[in-house]
């Protein structure tokens, strides 16, 4: 017979909020925090324009999340292999044949930029 859980009739504690509280406490004491400069740098790497307000909000939110994932530091995974895929497929190849889902003209129509001679016109890359 399956044992009903012991917690059933107890009042619920909000453990998740408590965990968050602990995480925030740790954050204050830790040297680890993404500062606004770092957020600006990541945004640059990811080619994202951010407003000053966004930079402030994201600094706090990303610090919270990074602090939470620090949880993995407590796991001993030494000697364990890295999993990058789960169904065991290896070296999937296809015949070297052209497969067309649609024609080139239709693909060009997806671009919001002007087209010219079956090409998309972009801003100049090299200044003359």
């Amino acid at each position: 017979m399956y044992q009903r859980s012991l917690y059933k009739n107890r009042p619920q504690k909000n453990i998740l909020t408590f965990q968050l509280f602990l995480a925030k406490l740790a954050l204050i004491n830790s040297n680890f925090m993404i500062f606004e400069e770092e957020v600006k740098h990541i945004a640059k790497l990811a080619r994202l324009t951010l407003t000053e307000k966004e930079i402030k909000t994201f600094s706090t939110q990303l610090s919270d999340v990074l602090e939470y994932v620090e949880l993995l530091n407590s796991v001993d995974a030494e000697g364990s292999l890295e999993t990058s895929q789960v169904t065991g497929l290896q070296n999937v190849t296809e015949k070297d044949e052209i497969m067309r889902k649609c024609d080139g003209e239709a693909l060009l129509l997806c671009s919001p930029l002007p087209k010219e001679r079956k090409q998309i016109r972009v801003k100049p890359i090299i200044k003359m």
Binding site: V69, L72, N73, A77, S80, E82, T83, S84, V86
Partner: peptide
């Protein structure tokens, strides 16, 4: 990233 992938193995 590498650490997460290792823990992923433990979950599997």
């Amino acid at each position: 990233y590498k650490k997460a992938q290792k823990v992923r193995t433990l979950i599997v």
